[in-house]
Amino acid sequence: MEPLFAIVIGIMFAITVFLFLSRSFVRIVLGIFMLSNATHLLIFTAGRLTFESPPLIPYDQSVPIEAIANPLPQALILTAIVISFALFAFVLILTYRAYQELGTVDVDEMNASEPRAAASEEAAE
Protein backbone atom coordinates (compact mmCIF):
# COMPACT_ATOMS: atom_id res chain seq x y z
CA MET A 1 0.00 0.00 0.00
CA GLU A 2 2.78 2.43 0.89
CA PRO A 3 4.16 2.78 -2.66
CA LEU A 4 0.69 3.66 -3.93
CA PHE A 5 0.28 6.31 -1.23
CA ALA A 6 3.75 7.63 -1.96
CA ILE A 7 2.83 8.06 -5.63
CA VAL A 8 -0.45 9.78 -4.78
CA ILE A 9 1.34 12.15 -2.38
CA GLY A 10 3.94 12.85 -5.03
CA ILE A 11 1.24 13.74 -7.56
CA MET A 12 -0.41 16.04 -5.03
CA PHE A 13 2.89 17.81 -4.38
CA ALA A 14 3.39 18.17 -8.12
CA ILE A 15 -0.05 19.78 -8.44
CA THR A 16 0.89 22.10 -5.57
CA VAL A 17 4.05 23.22 -7.31
CA PHE A 18 2.14 23.77 -10.55
CA LEU A 19 -0.45 25.90 -8.75
CA PHE A 20 2.23 27.87 -6.90
CA LEU A 21 3.87 28.80 -10.18
CA SER A 22 0.70 30.49 -11.37
CA ARG A 23 0.41 34.26 -11.37
CA SER A 24 -3.18 34.20 -10.19
CA PHE A 25 -3.36 34.52 -6.44
CA VAL A 26 -6.46 32.34 -6.21
CA ARG A 27 -4.50 29.44 -7.66
CA ILE A 28 -1.70 30.01 -5.17
CA VAL A 29 -4.23 29.84 -2.35
CA LEU A 30 -5.62 26.61 -3.80
CA GLY A 31 -2.03 25.40 -3.94
CA ILE A 32 -1.69 25.97 -0.20
CA PHE A 33 -4.84 23.95 0.33
CA MET A 34 -3.50 21.11 -1.82
CA LEU A 35 -0.15 21.26 -0.05
CA SER A 36 -1.71 20.91 3.39
CA ASN A 37 -3.79 17.95 2.21
CA ALA A 38 -0.73 16.28 0.72
CA THR A 39 1.06 16.83 4.02
CA HIS A 40 -1.74 15.25 6.03
CA LEU A 41 -1.63 12.21 3.78
CA LEU A 42 2.14 12.11 4.16
CA ILE A 43 1.93 12.08 7.96
CA PHE A 44 -0.69 9.35 7.72
CA THR A 45 1.58 7.24 5.56
CA ALA A 46 4.66 7.96 7.66
CA GLY A 47 2.80 6.53 10.65
CA ARG A 48 2.67 3.14 8.84
CA LEU A 49 -0.45 1.84 7.14
CA THR A 50 -2.45 -0.97 8.66
CA PHE A 51 -5.48 -2.59 7.15
CA GLU A 52 -8.86 -2.79 8.87
CA SER A 53 -7.67 -2.64 12.47
CA PRO A 54 -9.04 0.43 14.23
CA PRO A 55 -7.15 1.55 17.34
CA LEU A 56 -9.82 0.37 19.76
CA ILE A 57 -9.28 -1.58 22.94
CA PRO A 58 -12.10 -4.00 23.93
CA TYR A 59 -14.16 -3.01 26.94
CA ASP A 60 -12.71 -5.55 29.39
CA GLN A 61 -9.08 -5.13 28.35
CA SER A 62 -6.55 -2.47 29.23
CA VAL A 63 -4.15 -3.13 26.35
CA PRO A 64 -4.96 -3.95 22.72
CA ILE A 65 -5.04 -7.69 22.10
CA GLU A 66 -3.77 -7.58 18.52
CA ALA A 67 -1.78 -5.18 16.37
CA ILE A 68 -3.78 -1.99 15.79
CA ALA A 69 -3.47 1.07 13.60
CA ASN A 70 -1.26 3.78 15.04
CA PRO A 71 -3.61 6.40 16.50
CA LEU A 72 -1.00 9.12 16.97
CA PRO A 73 -0.65 10.16 13.29
CA GLN A 74 -4.44 10.42 13.16
CA ALA A 75 -4.39 12.75 16.15
CA LEU A 76 -1.64 14.79 14.53
CA ILE A 77 -3.56 15.00 11.26
CA LEU A 78 -6.73 16.03 13.07
CA THR A 79 -4.83 18.86 14.77
CA ALA A 80 -3.22 19.87 11.50
CA ILE A 81 -6.58 19.80 9.68
CA VAL A 82 -8.15 22.03 12.31
CA ILE A 83 -5.30 24.50 12.07
CA SER A 84 -5.08 24.51 8.29
CA PHE A 85 -8.87 24.90 8.12
CA ALA A 86 -8.68 28.06 10.22
CA LEU A 87 -5.72 29.49 8.33
CA PHE A 88 -7.18 28.62 4.96
CA ALA A 89 -10.43 30.37 5.85
CA PHE A 90 -8.43 33.41 6.87
CA VAL A 91 -6.34 33.49 3.71
CA LEU A 92 -9.45 33.06 1.60
CA ILE A 93 -11.13 36.06 3.23
CA LEU A 94 -7.91 38.01 2.94
CA THR A 95 -7.67 37.23 -0.77
CA TYR A 96 -11.26 38.33 -1.26
CA ARG A 97 -10.68 41.58 0.63
CA ALA A 98 -7.45 42.22 -1.27
CA TYR A 99 -9.28 41.61 -4.53
CA GLN A 100 -11.92 44.17 -3.54
CA GLU A 101 -9.28 46.73 -2.57
CA LEU A 102 -6.69 46.13 -5.27
CA GLY A 103 -9.00 45.08 -8.08
CA THR A 104 -6.66 42.31 -9.18
CA VAL A 105 -5.46 38.86 -8.21
CA ASP A 106 -2.44 38.92 -10.53
CA VAL A 107 0.70 38.80 -8.40
CA ASP A 108 2.61 40.86 -10.97
CA GLU A 109 0.25 43.76 -10.42
CA MET A 110 0.41 43.58 -6.65
CA ASN A 111 3.01 46.15 -5.74
CA ALA A 112 1.28 48.56 -3.40
CA SER A 113 3.41 47.42 -0.46
CA GLU A 114 6.65 47.51 -2.44
CA PRO A 115 6.43 50.36 -4.91
CA ARG A 116 9.10 50.36 -7.58
CA ALA A 117 11.74 53.03 -7.15
CA ALA A 118 10.68 54.86 -10.32
CA ALA A 119 7.04 54.83 -9.27
CA SER A 120 7.82 56.26 -5.84
CA GLU A 121 9.98 59.01 -7.35
CA GLU A 122 7.11 60.00 -9.60
CA ALA A 123 4.86 60.08 -6.59
CA ALA A 124 7.32 62.31 -4.78
CA GLU A 125 7.47 64.87 -7.54
Binding site: F25, V29, I32, S36, L87, V91, T95, A98, A112, S113
Partner: peptide, 19 residues
Protein backbone atom coordinates in the same frame (compact mmCIF):
# COMPACT_ATOMS: atom_id res chain seq x y z
CA UNK B 1 -4.31 48.55 0.43
CA UNK B 2 -0.62 47.96 1.07
CA UNK B 3 -1.46 46.23 4.35
CA UNK B 4 -3.74 43.70 2.72
CA UNK B 5 -1.14 43.04 0.08
CA UNK B 6 1.73 42.75 2.53
CA UNK B 7 -0.42 40.43 4.63
CA UNK B 8 -1.08 38.21 1.60
CA UNK B 9 2.64 37.81 0.91
CA UNK B 10 3.34 37.25 4.60
CA UNK B 11 0.50 34.75 4.92
CA UNK B 12 1.38 32.65 1.89
CA UNK B 13 5.09 32.40 2.63
CA UNK B 14 4.60 31.71 6.32
CA UNK B 15 1.95 29.09 5.61
CA UNK B 16 4.34 27.47 3.17
CA UNK B 17 7.08 27.50 5.82
CA UNK B 18 4.92 25.94 8.51
CA UNK B 19 3.67 23.31 6.08
Amino acid sequence: KDQLEGALKYAVLNLLATT
